[in-house]
Design a protein around this nucleic acid. Structure first.
Lengths: 245, 245
DNA sequence: CAAAGTTGTGTATTTTTTACACATAAAAAA
DNA sequence: TTTTTTATGTGTAAAAAATACACAACTTTG
């Protein structure tokens, strides 16, 4: 006796050939753009380069590139960083994807924005093509494509993120003084903070390691140097934020 | 006398034909996937549908679609919502782009995840093809593609976001009781909260409008109904969070 | 040796968070 | 109609966190 196999109604139209399906999809050029922040002379800076396009002659643009076949977006972003700064182990986070149909004068290109933070002094720029340079954030003017909007969104992202996560240490030397740390926060958040309360706050977090060294070559009384205790932080990440808006 | 025009070195290799440049770019199929959250019977739910692919027979997947030529990602996401729920003015936010080369069995497809929140009772599902249904979050098992990871990331995003922004009201009726609001927060954050402190917190924000109506048809003492004061919120968004991690 | 610039520290006040209990109201069940 | 169930609505005391604020000491430079 023949067995009856139950077939759900929708199984009748199941697609067997996934490859053919995908090949029939329209497709779109995809790039990654990196917003690379640095900190120097108490200013937040961003790495920019003159646009290659005549259309945007003399406009600065972000460091970006086409995503290769079978390359993950994260990979592409790391590749760009490596090519431009020589750095490998750098902070990197995806921020947002930008898709306005006219964002590129050559036709539709989708781009995924990544934000990266690095210590300017640890990484000499390898290539100085096209006026690659660190540009101070507050004075950044128009840019090519929608890159100004991308920078602005990454900056907002950074302002929020730095208050809740220890990102900022990626912008500082491994050993830093509390003044340097405060200057960093003040520059990024564009506020001024009370020194005593700032120090008290970080003291209460108990995530800075006093390495018992002093600043060198400062033209004033040297401060103590600290390292951030990433290990302890990883173990004790807090989850609860508290409802507040 | 002939004028000398200064030409920066890099201007010699400026690209004139942006169109040709873009046409030479490799391209990739791009989709949008929507993680649509609802709230019903004190549970957070997500809208899922059986996969069309034989490869993922009987696996649930998210509502997604190819992004059309010259369609913005946001547009595509709104289109999907409209097609599936009939809803137009719905909360929607881009969360993240997923690019693993093998995430789709038919070949490389990049997808942009959007998160949407809507009130289940206000929107009858138009189409019930492929077992479209609201699935309770805690019991959601494996899914097709990398959709489980996408849901997980959107859920984390929601947990964080709901504590800092008044998203949650999109999941509730326009008029809601404080108990409903607390149940929502407890379900999403998977914690239990002290009722008096919860109410005190919202009272101190002063963003709920007491509309002087009571709950109907509840099997117990009815509570007062409130609306969220979106207008006042928009005017008074706070910017400063406070360093804390 | 004086001036400039910065370090390092404490306390009082206010605000926010937390923990916790009881009387009351409405509906449902007995 | 009474009792039970379930939820509403409210206040206070204690602890923790945030804020505002000032002065003495150290190092370098001129």
């Amino acid at each position: 006796m023949k067995k009856h196999v139950t077939v759900a109604p929708h199984e009748e139209h199941l697609i067997k050939d996934a490859k053919a399906l995908v090949q029939a999809y329209p497709s779109v050029p995809l790039t990654v753009d990196c917003v690379i922040f640095g900190f120097e002379e108490n200013k937040l800076k961003v790495l920019v380069i003159k646009s290659d396009l005549e259309y945007y002659k003399n406009h600065y643009s972000l460091l970006g590139d086409i995503v290769k076949d079978n390359e993950e977006l994260d990979e592409a972003a790391y590749r760009i960083l490596k090519e431009r700064t020589g750095m490998n182990d750098v902070f990197l986070d995806q921020v947002r994807t930008f898709s306005h149909p006219n964002r590129h004068p050559g036709g539709r290109v989708i781009t995924v924005a990544y934000c990266s933070l690095l210590n300017i002094n640890h990484h000499q720029l390898k290539i100085h093509d096209n006026d690659l340079n660190w540009h101070s954030m507050p004075t950044l003017g128009d840019m090519a494509f929608d890159h100004k909007e991308i920078v602005d969104q990454c900056y907002s992202w950074l302002q929020k993120r730095i208050q809740e996560h220890p990102l900022g240490f990626n912008l500082l030397p491994e050993k830093f003084s509390l003044r340097e740390l405060q200057n960093l926060y003040e520059a990024i958040l564009a506020v001024s903070l009370d020194r005593r309360n700032f120090r008290k706050k970080f003291a209460s977090m108990d995530l800075l390691i006093d390495i018992d060294e002093m600043e060198q070559d400062v033209p004033h009384r040297p401060g103590k140097l600290y390292k951030f205790n990433f290990e302890k932080y990883e173990k004790s990440k807090r989850k609860w934020i508290g409802i507040d808006f």
